[in-house]
Simulated assay, not measured.
Amino acid sequence: MNNEPADTAEEPRGCLFALSQPPLMLFLTLVATLILLTAVHDLYRW
């Protein structure tokens, strides 16, 4: 006999769980770095 409630199934994972994944964070860091480098290049271009 199972005494656990039926609604203790795995909770749905939201956006914060997706953002905590290392491959996604590495990709977002790379994109942000490229955007920052292009912005600095445009500001200090001769």
Rank of each mutant, 00 (worst) to 15 (best):
R45A: 12
A39T: 05
G14A: 04
P22K: 03
L37M: 11
V31I: 10
T38N: 05
L24F: 01
S20C: 09
L34M: 03
L43S: 07
R45F: 04
L16V: 15
E10C: 11
R45S: 13
L34D: 05
P12N: 09
L36S: 12
D42Q: 10
Q21C: 12
P5H: 05
V40I: 02
M1C: 11
Q21N: 11
L30K: 07
H41M: 07
V31K: 02
V40T: 04
E10G: 07
I35W: 03
A18Y: 15
A39I: 05
P5I: 03
H41P: 01
L34E: 02
P12H: 07
L16S: 14
Y44A: 05
T8I: 12
D7L: 00
D42K: 03
L19N: 10
I35Q: 07
P12G: 07
L24S: 02
Y44E: 02
E4R: 14
L28D: 02
C15A: 15
A6Q: 08
T29N: 08
F17Y: 14
Q21G: 12
E11C: 06
A6V: 05
A32D: 01
H41A: 13
N3G: 14
A32Y: 00
L26H: 04
L26V: 10
M1L: 15
L30Y: 02
A39C: 06
A32W: 00
S20I: 00
T8G: 09
V31T: 01
L36K: 04
L26I: 11
T33F: 06
P22C: 02
Q21T: 09
P22F: 07
L19R: 14
F17P: 03
L24T: 02
L24K: 00
M1K: 13
M25T: 04
L34I: 11
T33I: 09
L28K: 01
N3C: 15
G14N: 07
E11A: 15
L36F: 09
I35V: 10
C15R: 15
N3W: 03
L37F: 03
N2C: 03
L43P: 01
L37E: 03
L37P: 00
L36G: 08
T29V: 01
T38I: 07
L37H: 04
A9K: 05
L26G: 11
R13A: 15
T8S: 05
M25K: 12
R45K: 10
N2Y: 12
D42H: 11
Q21E: 11
L43K: 13
L30S: 12
L16H: 06
E4N: 13
